[in-house]
Simulated scan of single mutants.
Amino acid sequence: MDPAERIQAASSFLLQAPPGEINDVLNDVRAVISDDDSLQDGVLPALREYNLTQFTTVDVPGVEHQTIVSEIARISSEEEGEERYLDPRSKTSFRFDHLSLEATDPQPTESDEESEPLREALEKATQLYLSAHYHDGVAAVFSHAGENRFTIQVVANKYNPNNYWSGRWRSQYVVNFNENKVEGFILVHVHYYEQGNVQLTTSHKLFLTLPQTAVTSSPQQTASKILAQIESEEGKYQVSLNDAYQEMGEKTFKGLRRALPMTRQKLDWDKVLGYKLGAELSASKGGGFGSAI
C-alpha cells in the first residue's frame, strides 16, 4: 500500500472513531503511517470533518462556558485567510486547531440587533432544559440574520474508559418562524468494548409545527414553548431507545446465540484442534476425497 492509500485508510478510520476515542485511533494509525508530518497533513481534512460533525466542545480563552465547534458555528474559512468560529452566547469569535482541539485568538463580535432578543431567549430556555436533563451537556443557539431562523445545537458526552464504554448525544433544531415549523435530528452513538466491540449508532428526524399560541409577543414565552415541544419529542425518543434496548437484551441477542451445540454438550475450546483432527480421520476412514486408504 502506497503512502497516499495509507493516508486515505487512516482518514477513514478517524471518521469512524467512537466518542472520546479519536486520540486513541490517531495513535493507532500513527504506528501504521510512521511519518508524523505526513500523517498530520494528510488526515487534517478528516479531523476537521470529524470535529464539525461530532459537535466538538471547546473552552474559549476568557469565556467561562464551553461552546460547540460545528459547521453552523463557522463564520470564515481558511480560503478567506483564517478559519474562525462563533460562540454566540459570549459573542466571541475564535480560531480552532483541529489537531490540538484548542481555541485561540478570541475576539468580540457584533450580534444582529433585530434577532438577538429572541436568540438570547432561546439560549436561556435551552440552557435551562440542558441543566434539567443532560449531564455535562453543552448547547449553542445561532441566529441567521435577516432570515427569521435560529439553530439550536446540543451535545452531551459520557466517557467511561474504566468500564469500557463511551457515548455521545447530538441534536440540532432549526426554528423557522417564517413557516412556523421546527426541523431537526437526533444522533446517538454508543461504544462498548469490554472483551469485544459493540457499537450503537442511531438517528431520528423531527418535524414539528409550531402552534399559533407558541409565537407570542414575548421572546421568553415563545422560547419556553418551543423548548417544551423539543423536550417532549426528545423524551419520546429516549423512551423508544430504552424499549429497543430491552428488546435486544431479551430477544435479539439471545436469538443470535445457541445455549448448547447440537450435541447438547458444551464445547471444550482447549480440544478444538483434537476435534478437527478427529473429523479428518473419520473422513479418511470413510474413503472420501483425498483418502490415504
Rank of each mutant, 00 (worst) to 15 (best):
His204Cys: 12
Lys285Leu: 14
Met262Val: 10
Asn176Gln: 05
Val138Ser: 04
Ser115Leu: 13
Phe207Ser: 14
Asn162Asp: 10
Lys285Val: 13
Gln172His: 00
Asp243Cys: 03
Ala279Thr: 01
Thr104Tyr: 01
Arg95Tyr: 00
Val182Pro: 10
Ser76Ile: 13
Val239Trp: 02
Arg48Thr: 15
Ser11Tyr: 07
Arg257Asn: 10
Glu280Arg: 14
Glu179Gln: 11
Gly235Glu: 09
Arg84Cys: 05
Asp268Glu: 12
Ile72Ser: 09
Glu64Trp: 00
Asp41Ala: 14
Val182Cys: 03
Ile152Asn: 03
Ala9Ile: 05
Ser77Cys: 02
Phe185Arg: 12
Ile152Trp: 02
Ala103Val: 07
Ala145Tyr: 00
Glu64Cys: 01
Leu86Pro: 05
Asp37Leu: 05
Gly274Ile: 05
Ser143Lys: 04
Trp169Leu: 02
Gly137Pro: 02
Leu208Val: 09
Glu71Met: 10
Tyr192Ile: 09
Lys276Thr: 12
Ala9Pro: 01
His191Gln: 05
Thr56Lys: 13
Tyr134Trp: 09
Asp243Asn: 11
Val69Gln: 06
Glu21Phe: 04
Leu14Asn: 11
Asp28Ile: 02
Leu128Ser: 15
Ser93Cys: 10
Arg170Gly: 01
Leu26His: 07
Ala121Asn: 06
Glu49Asn: 11
Asn148Pro: 02
Asn176Arg: 06
Gly278Lys: 15
Phe253Val: 04
Asn23Thr: 12
His133Met: 03
Glu250Lys: 15
Gly81Lys: 10
Met1Thr: 11
Phe96His: 04
Phe96Val: 10
Lys254Arg: 14
Arg264His: 13
Thr92Pro: 12
Ala4Leu: 13
Ser38Glu: 11
Gln8Glu: 13
Gly278Asp: 06
Pro117Phe: 07
Asp37Glu: 14
His133Lys: 15
Tyr192Asn: 07
Phe150Glu: 09
Leu210Met: 12
Pro117Asp: 00
Pro211Phe: 05
Ala10Asp: 03
Arg84Met: 10
Leu26Phe: 11
Phe253Ala: 02
Glu78Leu: 13
Tyr159Val: 11
Pro106His: 07
Leu208Asn: 04
Gln127Asn: 13
Thr252Arg: 04
Val60Arg: 09
Leu187Lys: 14
Asp37Pro: 00
Val29Asp: 06
Asp59Tyr: 01
Tyr275Ala: 08
Asp35Val: 09
Glu83His: 10
Lys181Pro: 03
Glu49Cys: 02
Ser115Asn: 11
Glu78Pro: 04
Trp165Ile: 11
His98Leu: 05
Asn178Lys: 14
Lys181Thr: 08
Gly184Tyr: 03
Pro18Val: 02
Thr67His: 08
Phe177Ile: 02
Leu241Ala: 06
Ser76Ala: 13
Arg84Ser: 13
Lys91His: 14
His189Trp: 09
Thr202Cys: 03
Ala4His: 08
Ser203Glu: 05
Gly274Arg: 06
Asp97Lys: 10
Val58Arg: 12
Asp105Pro: 01
Ala46His: 04
Glu179His: 11
Val155Thr: 15
Asn197Leu: 03
Pro108His: 02
Thr201Met: 06
Val32Lys: 07
Pro106Cys: 06
Phe253Glu: 01
Gln8Trp: 01
Phe94Pro: 08
Leu273Asp: 15
Tyr129Arg: 04
Ala259Ile: 10
Phe94Ile: 05
Ser76Phe: 09
